[in-house]
Design a protein around this nucleic acid. Sequence first.
RNA 1: GCCCCCAUCGUCCAGCGGCCUCGGACGCCGGCCUUUCAAGCCGGAAACACGGGUUCGAAUCCCGUUGGGGGCACCA
Length: 449
Amino acid sequence: MTVRVRFAPSPTGYLHVGGGRTALYNWLFARHLGGVFVLRSDDTDTERNTPEYQTDILDSLTWLGIDWDEGIGAGGPHGSYRQSDRSARYRQVAESLVASGAAYYDGATPTQIEAIRVEAEAAGASPVYDGRHRLSAAEAAARIAAGNPPPVRLAVPRPGETRFVDVVRGEIVFSHDNVDDFVMLRSDGSPTYHLASTVDDVDYLITHVIRGEDILPSTPKHILITEVMGGVRPEYAHLSLLNGPDGKKLSKRHGDTAIRAYRDAGFLPGAVRNFLAILGWSPGDDEEIVSLETMIERFDLGAVSRNPAVFDIAKLEWMNGHYLRAMPAAEFVAAALPIVESDLGRTLTVAESEAFGAVAPLVQERAKRLTEITPQVRFLVEEEIAYDPASWDKVMTTIEAGAALDGAAAALESLDVWSVTSVEAALRGMLEQTGLSAGKGLQPIRVAV
RNA sequence: GCCCCCAUCGUCCAGCGGCCUCGGACGCCGGCCUUUCAAGCCGGAAACACGGGUUCGAAUCCCGUUGGGGGCACCA
């Protein structure tokens, strides 16, 4: 049987680095096994969805080098792969589950739900709704006829439990005492996430659901729906979440969380992809710079770490620098030139491009990000030279600065020919005379120049 | 309050009962190289959360404690 996985983001924000990692793991898993990677859009939240986010998610995945075999924009046998186009199907499933007795129309008011919560808390129990206010067929029919349809809830078997073996976490058991009769179909006829997502997984014949740990507690609901639908239960794998340096969930206050922000900050897609792959998974040996081919060849869901991982920007920067240095010179220039031009606000002349090409290998050695290049080459193309007051002060206020400068001036004045070798010889002579070290004596000259 | 997950250096990963006085990477510190800064090379500090078991033997298995994370909507 061919493996089928899916990545199903909601277009309610830019693609998050955590989402990027989830997508990557799904993709690696599929590629490793020769399976099918489906991209679906869980866009049932019409209030928060935007086309801009939808576009960003697609662009970010593509930038990371993740392609999909089926789904949004790629087509496939299951329609548009957008949940917003499938409301009729979700409603149909909900109604058939009501007909079979697996679900019911519910009449609980918010006040009643709240009362149950308070009661449970007082008793030290889980605040679960158990269906005590379900409507009879006649009552439900009356409300539907009156244009005031009730929501549909799943009748969770009580007592009972749902158990499954999570591919990364092992056996997991949830007592139904902690799973409530959740809403599947809202009173306005729209599906909730649990219904839509599960129906899609069943309809699209998904074999492995690989997603964030944040939805681990919802998994029994999804398994229950799958079973009453008569669907085949997929394998589940819940990935640990990404944290900030303080151990808290990675969020804006820790820095950038969107994949696009890293692209804009001058990171290479290969480096980001490598970093994300290694964050929670190891190819086995001690090597951490790993090629795409190796990743695909060795990826193993069962070997994925259960620990929450801290997103360490410093390591990403190191890795990006490594990838930058590993690029062939021409490729580096090709990647850097557009950014330099964009920073400068104009295109470079042929001569300038050539000058840039000549110094590029020098900056390639020391840049950690593509965005660090422009400041280093600006002097090549601008008449006005800006200097950094901080470094000026730091060097020029040293007691050796005056002697170094005077000595250098004298030494250079006496030169007939200015060449690399003659200038160097003159300056070395100056160092000799003044007794200054290379660092103390040459740095002021460098800054002055 | 209730439920679930997690627990090896500051951070990520390796270790899946003896090969461990725990290995690698980033970061940090020191040195070498070097006309700066990087890069590179060499070296160093740095961890099995705690308490009980199981076992001839535990970082590895079990239980508890503590700590951290996630979830408990007609949001996804």
